[in-house]
């Protein structure tokens, strides 16, 4: 199975706009929303006939039993995550706690236990021969990298030639987790100094994991000078540049109504179709 991942570095450049159109244009049978921090792909994926929800568990978190705590402070001294709050009895903050168990090992009173913690929910939606994997992160939970891996695992065994993954902004753990094992990372950039600065960092992150990259520029006509700078960067770095998408106010109208751009006729939709064909051709040779 080839895995096409859509990334951007900078947020809000149009990853989900491109991913949702590609899913329809390629008639993909498997896709996933790896932006578990701020998922949106479900809004433009249509209705499904069957959905399976599963709890996703993080490492168990520390809990201090107030009846046994003598406020000796050892747990506080060893915790590197600032997860122990000081008081007449000490308390463990389940948001800051990463579940390392250091506190449990040093507590002389045996007052600390590790309690199972739900970190979110993973969903597997299906209709006919299509599957869509997505997740929601419980507020205050922070294990996004592992949750991304769990989201990807749900479509791993699907018998389909192509899976499309909608990624998250940035270059940290969720992005690294989404890049792992991807065939190609298509970077949706925007023509701004921020867009280019962020693009450089996300391209470096992908190449470090040996994932090939290609670039498109969305809303290209907002700043043609910056768009040219991105093209030049791609030429200099030998990165395939697969095209530009013009700023098109009808995009928002479509997405707000829950429709992807695959069958629209607007300037942005036409450009995305051409870019899909080039992306498909590139995927063939990878």
């Amino acid at each position: 199975m080839r895995k096409l991942l859509i990334l951007s570095g900078k947020g809000g450049t149009g990853k989900t706009t491109v991913a949702s159109a590609f899913i329809a244009l390629s008639a993909a049978r498997a896709w996933a929303d790896c932006d578990v921090d701020a998922p949106n792909l479900h809004l433009v994926s249509g209705a499904f006939t069957k959905s399976i929800a599963k709890d996703y568990h993080d490492l168990p978190k520390a809990r201090i039993d107030a009846d046994f705590c003598t406020a000796c402070g050892r747990c506080h001294d060893v915790c590197r995550f600032d997860a122990i709050t000081v008081g007449s009895v000490y308390q463990a903050d389940p948001i800051a706690c990463e579940g390392c168990t250091f506190c449990l090992h040093v507590c002389p009173e045996g007052a600390i236990t590790m309690e199972e913690s739900k970190a979110g929910e993973i969903f597997l939606h299906t209709r006919e021969d299509q599957v869509f994997s997505t997740a929601t992160l419980k507020m205050g939970s922070g294990t996004t990298g592992k949750l991304v891996t769990a989201v990807k695992d749900q479509i791993k065994g699907v018998d389909a030639p192509l899976a499309i993954l909608d990624g998250s902004p940035g270059i940290g753990c969720p992005v690294i987790a989404s890049l792992t094992g991807s065939t190609l990372a298509l970077m949706v950039s925007e023509p701004s100094v921020s867009g280019l600065s962020d693009l450089r960092r996300v391209v470096a992150s992908a190449l470090q994991l040996d994932v090939p990259v290609a670039v498109v520029v969305n809303k290209a006509d907002i700043n043609s000078k910056q768009c040219a700078a991105i093209k030049r960067y791609c030429t200099d770095e030998h990165i395939p540049f697969l095209g530009t998408i013009p700023y098109d106010p009808t995009v928002v109208t479509h997405l707000n109504e829950g429709r992807n751009l695959a069958h629209a006729n607007s300037p942005a939709a036409v450009a995305i179709k051409a870019i899909w064909e080039r992306t498909a051709a590139l995927l063939e040779v990878l």
């Binding site: 990463e98 922070g142 294990t143 990298g145 592992k146 690294i176 987790a177 792992t180 994991l209």
Partner: peptide
């Protein structure tokens, strides 16, 4: 062998 990244 696929890259096996699993950091939190």
């Amino acid at each position: 062998i696929h890259s096996g990244y699993h950091h939190g």
